[in-house]
């Protein structure tokens, strides 16, 4: 393992200390761990809280700020945060209009957020939770934990954050979050494994000439392992699966999100975006907004994911609204 760390046990705490030092417009708490925007709670505004295991930066802590999340709860690396963190974050951002929990669909995250919602309600705070499950690599059935929450989480955090800033009600913000999830589909691929600091070795073995199609953001296995191929063929398979799943149709307007897994340079993500535009052009699907960069990562994993969100006027306007976080920033 080659990592810029001191001690594997201290990575999350020391990164949070760095976050606190770098961003005076955030308040970082350590017992338990959570990050809130410094002006929280904003009176009369729905509070937006998310959280999950660490190791996916900038998600979620990098998305705390005006126009996006009010608070984020970082767990240990790739481990769900705990209900006490979520409860403290919920109380800190409760401005009287209720609090939305945005939860990625993993067994641990869902159960911990359920307990936190119960605790929040017991304290008199109105809490709604929406589970994000956009990963088409997983077959959704009664016999699995369901589809995983991946790229759509970033989009849901931005769009609900914008709606909350415009003083939408809790019911409206929750409905919007469900709509974003319903209209999004994602899939990823890996060229190399991630290495968690505590394990110190690759989460999975992948040959020098192999790739994993359908990878999860914790290195969970995908749909198939195959020989490395040119970007055009890889993106054709991933985009084709995503397009066919919703399905995205001729005439649709979409937000295309090309995400790096942490170890892939931006130049390669633009190669991916170029391939994606050709495929969508061929299908008559029009990209009207895009996001390209590493926003929901898996430590140092090399690879990418693609998320498509079907847009309408409401979502486009919310996407364009100002946002001021360390991870996403425009219009301010």
């Amino acid at each position: 393992m080659k990592k810029l760390i001191n001690n594997p046990d201290d990575v999350v705490r020391e990164a949070l200390q760095g976050t606190a030092a770098a961003h005076p417009d955030l308040k970082v708490f350590f017992d338990p761990h959570y990050i809130v925007r410094a002006d929280a709670p904003v009176q009369g505004k729905v509070g937006i809280v998310s959280g999950g295991g660490s190791g996916h930066e900038p998600m979620h802590g990098g998305f705390v700020g005006m126009g996006m999340l009010d608070a984020a709860c970082p767990g240990e690396v790739f481990t769900s945060p705990t209900p006490d963190q979520m409860l403290e974050a919920t109380k800190a951002v409760s401005g009287g209009a209720g609090v939305l929990h945005i939860v990625k669909n993993y067994t641990g995250d869902v159960m911990n957020f359920e307990m936190a919602a119960d605790l929040g309600k017991a304290e008199g705070i109105e809490v709604e939770a929406v589970v994000i499950d956009d990963d088409v690599a997983v077959q959704d059935s009664l016999y699995t934990a369901g589809r995983r929450g991946v790229g759509a989480t970033v989009l849901a955090e931005k769009l609900t954050g914008a709606a909350a800033e415009a003083k939408a009600t809790l019911a409206e913000v929750a409905e919007l979050c469900k709509k974003v999830n319903d209209q999004s589909r994602s899939m990823g691929m890996a060229l190399t494994s991630c290495v968690t600091p505590s394990a110190g070795k690759p989460t999975f073995e992948l040959g020098d000439d192999e790739m994993e199609i359908g990878i999860g953001i914790h290195g969970e296995p995908g749909r198939e392992r195959k020989k490395l191929a040119p970007a055009s063929g890889i993106i054709e398979q991933i985009a084709g699966t995503i397009i066919g799943d919703l399905p995205f149709k001729q005439g649709d307007e979409v937000l295309a999100f090309v995400n790096g897994m942490g170890g892939t340079p931006l130049i390669e993500l633009y190669v991916v975006y170029n391939e994606l535009t050709k495929i969508l052009d061929g299908k008559g699907v029009k990209i009207t907004r895009n996001l390209i960069g590493s926003y929901i990562t898996s430590l140092e994993m090399a690879g990418c994911s693609i998320t498509l969100l079907k847009l309408d006027d409401e979502l486009t306007k919310l996407w364009d609204a100002p946002v001021k976080t360390s991870g996403l920033r425009w219009g301010v």
Binding site: G75, E76, S80, T82, T107, G108, E114, M115
Partner: peptide
């Protein structure tokens, strides 16, 4: 355990 374990094991 709920406040220290995290993941699925903590709540369970």
């Amino acid at each position: 355990l709920v406040s220290k374990v995290g993941g699925a094991g903590g709540p369970l």
